[in-house]
Design a protein around this nucleic acid. Structure first.
Length: 741
DNA sequence: TGACATATCATAATC
DNA sequence: TGATATGTCA
């Protein structure tokens, strides 16, 4: 798409409609991003608008980066335009006007792990029941408040009278005091405090309303009340606000998204133009028809009917399996079939409702030698060693950050335990100093042992050494790694685990080098900011030929030629909680719709008749969503809705109600798959031969203590094995008492 | 202070 | 089931 003329009539209308409020209802696969980027290009190239006057907001860094890329392709390099996530945009505003709301401009951003520590401390300090006020619960309450702009004072003032409410109010207040005292903000603050700032300081607001003549919001259905207020404030200037979204893809209500924002757009922005993008360029007619028939069961929709010019294509395949293990084997087998048909592994995705479901697929894929990668899970920046080093860097940047200090004061071990810390903390509180200051105070240090004292002093010297502003980030990072003794301590451990941590630290160094190369002269603060807002180095786009395993939620915005949706069972999908609490099925249904519309050519939906969930093995009920799919789009429809008695018989121990023969062959399948795969696949096994013990991914092994397992990964010296008894374990090949079976 | 045993709890996850 | 958090012991 080089020019607007390549857009379809509706897309073109959206791209050319630039003045006044505009709601673009963009169905799945309707060319949303192309439309938006052309709209921006049109503003700049045809209407002569200075990019400086345009503001586009997204939810994820990935979406922002993609939009920037595509706009730059259309209008040329280096567009000085705000294409930012909500948080990045708010942060930019806050940094500039921090003083207006009583913050120093160098405030730190607390991530959920930091928040958890603070919440825990608050509850403890207030002497409240730590079970009843778990960090997760406390933070969800505080988070919900912040999404709606409810301050600690507001919350406290609410008439409620219950002890619970009073305690929460106390916690919230202390939490806020702690953050403020540490010159820190959490993610919720970034939005809420920006809104407060703009509402209370018209002169600051005017700066932005004057600047932003055109505003665009991506994924509008996901906005929460504070984000909505933020947008409204900015649109209060020129009123040229274009929001793009799809009410049918609102799947984040549980984290604050308010679907009424998109449903009420026309009411909130009078004179709004509404354009529906309903032509789908992604899925075949059967997949689309099936998805449409499911979503049609939701009430209160804006009402879109996706259509496609493509006719026919594969029907949606439904299969019923005996349990989750057979489900895994079935999917592995079908994947090989797709590969035989010419698909690559990277064309295929398995989308499940809960992360726990990945296990059965990991096992089955390892046995069948299907290359895969699990997306989501442990984030790079969540790794302990990275967080530790970042805490040191935070201290270099902001020595009032008590949280960072607590994190690393005894990391590596300096002999400063709970007791010593408590003493110094008391001293700091009494003298009104930060912990870092207290730890450099001679009087306070006297409460430590001589050895601890020396270690702490040397750590402080290191931090002060790099706070002088004369070092670049690489020097700071390198210096801290050695001068704090962090890496030395890891190396002393001499374990596989520690070795991997050191490798991660070195990998992080290369991240720093890349940043400094692409942005020469970048300061520590700027760097820390980037890190705080980018939770992961984008590992999804790596061109690895492997099947993608991920949750339905993280699949939003992606597409794959072949999609598997396993676990189509009531209680799992829709989730048990959604079934219990009325009114929550709609969102699950939207999630189902999102999943189905990820598929371009082939879509499989699978249900296991038995499943182990939370250690309990139970008969399952088929997902209600399956019955909502029009049968004309389905292959295997006869297996739906016909087994009410089947699992009844099954539950009675009869085992004879199962109509399908496949269902009852869970055991002979494994051999079948093996042979099939061995034939289809002459791939090498990751080179696990060097250490003498030739373990390769997919091997079945027996360990003296852990019992039987399957090798997931092997790099020669380290073998990762999934054991039935103890789960995933990393073992040293050649040393571990383990053999192939 | 650190290693081990026991208790607990359980969707999804952006920034 | 299985990860994680807490408590107990040396």
């Amino acid at each position: 798409m080089e020019t607007v003329n390549d857009l379809n009539p509706m897309q073109r209308e959206a791209a050319l409609h630039t003045e006044g409020p505009l709601l673009v209802l963009a169905g799945a696969g309707s060319g949303k991003t192309g439309t938006m980027t052309h709209r921006i290009a049109h503003l700049i190239k045809d209407k002569g608008v200075d990019p400086y006057n345009i503001f586009a907001v997204t939810f994820t860094n990935k979406a922002a980066a993609e939009m920037r890329d595509r706009v730059e392709t259309l209008v040329g390099e280096g567009v000085r335009m705000w294409i930012l996530t909500f948080h990045a945009a708010c942060l930019r505003i806050l940094r500039k006007h921090a003083d207006l709301i009583g913050y120093r401009t160098d405030f730190t951003i607390y991530d959920p792990a930091d928040q958890k520590v603070v919440a825990k401390n608050c509850v403890r300090e207030l002497g409240l029941d730590e079970k009843r006020y778990s960090p997760a619960y406390v933070l969800s309450v505080i988070g919900k408040c912040k999404e709606r702009g409810k301050t600690a004072a507001d919350f406290e003032a609410e008439p409620s009278g219950t002890m619970q409410h009073d305690s929460l109010a106390e916690i919230y207040r202390l939490y806020e005091e702690t953050l403020k005292g540490n010159n820190a903000m959490d993610f919720g603050d970034l939005i809420m405090r920006t809104v407060f700032l703009l509402e209370r300081h018209p002169e600051a607001l005017a700066e932005y309303t004057r600047r932003f003549r055109y505003i665009m919001v991506d994924e509008y259905q996901d906005t929460d009340p504070m984000q909505y207020r933020f947008i409204r404030l900015l649109a209060g200037g020129y009123g040229n606000i274009c929001v793009v979204g799809d009410d049918d893809q609102c799947i984040y209500e549980w984290r604050g998204a308010d679907i009424t924002n998109i449903l009420n757009f026309e009411r909130d922005f009078p004179g709004a133009k509404v354009i529906k993008l309903e032509q789908n360029y992604r899925s075949n007619a059967n997949i689309l028809g099936g998805a449409n028939s499911v979503i049609a069961n939701n009430a209160g929709r804006k009402g879109k009917a996706l259509w496609t010019e493509r006719e026919g294509g594969d029907k949606i395949i439904f299969e019923r399996t005996y349990d989750e293990r057979e489900e895994g084997r079935y999917v592995a087998r079908e994947i090989e079939r797709c590969v035989g048909d010419g698909y690559s592994y990277r064309d295929i995705a398995v989308l499940y409702r809960t992360n726990a479901q990945s296990r059965a697929f990991e096992e089955a894929f390892s046995v069948a030698r299907v290359p895969y990668r699990v997306l989501g899970g442990v984030r790079y920046y969540d790794r302990k060693e990275i967080k530790d080093m970042l805490a040191y860097m935070r201290l270099v940047q902001n020595q009032s950050d008590d949280l960072a200090l607590v994190r690393v004061i005894n990391e590596p071990r300096r002999g400063v335990g709970e007791k010593s810390l408590a003493k110094v903390r008391a001293y700091a509180d009494a003298s009104g100093q930060s912990l870092f200051e207290a730890f450099s105070d001679e009087d306070a240090l006297m409460s430590l042992s001589a050895r601890a004292r020396a270690a702490v002093i040397s750590m402080e010297l290191a931090i002060r050494r790099y706070s002088d502003g004369d070092h670049n980030i690489q020097e700071i990072y390198d210096g801290l790694m050695t001068d704090t003794g962090y890496v030395a301590a890891l190396e002393e451990q001499n374990t596989v685990e520690a070795e991997r941590r050191v490798e991660n630290l070195l990998e992080f160094k290369s991240v720093i080098m890349e940043y400094e190369e692409s942005e020469p002269g970048i300061t520590l603060s700027e760097f820390m900011e980037k890190i705080a807002l980018i939770s992961d180095i984008d590992n999804h786009d790596r061109e690895e030929d492997a099947v993608a395993l991920m949750t339905l939620h993280s699949a939003k915005g992606l597409e794959f030629p072949v999609v598997f949706m396993p676990g189509m069972e009531d209680g799992l999908f829709p989730s048990g909680r959604a079934i219990e609490e009325s009114g929550r099925i709609d969102e699950e249904r939207r999630l189902c719709y999102v999943g189905m519309t990820r598929a371009k050519e082939r879509l499989y939906m699978i249900r296991a008749q038995e499943r182990t969930l939370y250690g309990r093995r139970d008969m399952t009920m088929e997902s209600r969503f399956l019955r909502e799919i029009d049968r004309e789009y389905l292959e295997g429809a006869e297996k739906i809705g016909s087994d009410t008695t089947d699992y009844f018989h099954g539950a009675m121990g009869g085992g004879d109600g199962f109509a399908s023969a496949e269902v009852f062959r869970p055991f002979d399948l494994i051999g079948g798959i093996r042979k099939e795969v061995a034939r289809a696949h002459k791939r090498e096994d990751g080179g696990g031969m060097s250490g003498g013990a030739p373990f390769a991914a997919g091997d079945k092994v027996r360990h003296n203590t852990f019992g039987d397992g399957v090798v997931l990964e092997s790099d020669g010296s380290v073998v990762t094995v999934m054991f039935g008894s103890v789960g995933k374990k990393r073992l040293a090949a050649g040393i571990a008492p383990m053999e192939k079976i």
